[in-house]
Amino acid sequence: MGTSRETILKRTADALAPLKERAAYPDFNDSVAVMPALDRAGDLWAIFSERAKLVHGTPLSGSPAVLANWLREKNHARGYCDPALLPQFGEALAAAGCEVETAFDRARVDDYQFGITRAEAAIAETGTLVLTDGSTSSRLAALAPWTHVAVLKREQIFADVATAVASLPADPNVIWCTGPSRTADVEGILIEGVHGPGVQVAFLLE
């Protein structure tokens, strides 16, 4: 079993042995690739919203009723809700006539029009949502329905990609979603909602 491993490591060592000098790890600042136009001290939710719209994301904020009414306007009547969010959102969703389940039944994948889960964080610079196994109650519920709503708090927003990388959570599955799922494979024409959500909502709960 170990032989291929040993061979590859030996070949690697032999390949590099003749080098008189190895390229050094360059000295650089973590924020080297942060866009200079970013106002890191500004209102991060406002920056996030602006950037999210550029990638066709949907930023919303307010009380649970705001989200429930928005879903209703989109004719979304059935969906999934993270059980941990149900105490806050359950009443408003019911009032708006949205039925929710708190377990995602993969056998009925086509029945869910939306999924509401919690985001781990967000990145203002790029309008990105951060999902993890720890925060997102079901990977499939955040992916398979046409509309995904990630619920977010103001203090969870990172200014930029560099900060988000420096603060990667200790979670085996950290997912950055920047706008909806998209493709341009057919003649370079942009189509949204390929395998994942066609509508990606970032909901700031206030």
Binding site: F104, V174, G196
Partner: peptide, 21 residues
């Protein structure tokens, strides 16, 4: 793009509380 739509950092199997994966 500034970032690709899905950027995933995967370091292992799913966590115990995660139903999918």
């Amino acid at each position: 793009q500034q970032l690709t739509s899905y950027t995933e950092f995967i370091s292992g199997p799913r966590t115990a509380n995660q139903p999918d994966g």
